[in-house]
Amino acid sequence: MIFGYARVSKKDQNLELQIDALKKYGVEEIYHEKMTGTKTDRSELEQLLKILRKGDKVVVYKLDRISRSTKHLIELVEFFEKKEIDFISIQDNIDTSSPIGRFIFRMIASIAELERDIIRERTIDGLAAARARGRKGGRPFTDKKIKEKALNMYKSEQFTLKEIRDMTGVASSTIYSWLYSWLKQENTEDL
């Protein structure tokens, strides 16, 4: 059986272009969803993967419609190969039912993996160079006096969180983190 999978990232986007292309290709059943590709819990894709059997085909409009990353795409194609399922990407002209299609897919995946490795190496080298110049990574350090001021303002019960934030210049999330730590410490000391 020929299955199709279509996805758009936003609720207000339209699936019609992908669905029309899948129908034109001869897809018999289409699974579709409106969800960002970075989400791991895509229920329609999960349902599709559960029903696939040896000899089936999975067709997508473009590679980025089915996978959230190169690694995920490679994992999917390895899953398809293991179950003897062909994978076709219409726009990318990839069809893993042929030796040339499998070769082209692996070549594209290898180039993408190489690109990811190069970016990782550049990042590591850049961080090392910054450390050598005395720079530290991570969040900027907040002066202990500012933290004490914020906590004292909170304890006085005379200031709102917005006022504390405006007067100290510290983000609400950071203040909440300090308050949580302080309250946790207070409760531990009471025991």
Rank of each mutant, 00 (worst) to 15 (best):
M1N: 14
Y5R: 12
V8M: 04
K10C: 04
K10Y: 08
K11G: 02
D12P: 01
Q13L: 05
N14T: 04
Q18L: 03
L22M: 07
K24N: 12
Y25L: 05
V27M: 12
H32P: 00
G37T: 11
R42T: 04
R42E: 13
S43F: 04
S43R: 13
L45M: 13
L45F: 14
E46N: 15
Q47P: 00
L52K: 10
D56S: 14
D56H: 13
Y61K: 01
S67V: 09
R68Y: 09
I74Q: 06
L76G: 05
E78L: 05
E78H: 05
E81R: 12
K83C: 03
E84W: 00
I88T: 11
D92E: 11
T96C: 08
T96A: 07
S97V: 01
P99Q: 10
R102K: 15
F103N: 06
I104A: 03
F105H: 03
M107K: 03
A109T: 08
A109V: 08
L114G: 13
D117A: 11
R120A: 14
E121A: 13
E121S: 15
T123L: 12
A128K: 13
R131H: 05
A132V: 01
R133P: 02
G138T: 08
R139C: 08
R139V: 11
R139D: 04
R139W: 03
P140Q: 10
F141W: 03
K145M: 08
K145V: 12
I146C: 06
L151Y: 09
L151V: 15
Q158S: 09
F159A: 08
F159C: 12
T160W: 08
K162P: 00
K162R: 14
E163W: 07
E163H: 09
E163S: 11
R165G: 01
R165M: 06
R165I: 02
T168P: 03
T168K: 05
S173N: 15
S173F: 15
T174I: 09
Y176W: 09
Y176E: 10
S177A: 13
Y180M: 05
Y180V: 03
K184C: 10
K184L: 14
E186K: 15
D190F: 00
L191C: 07
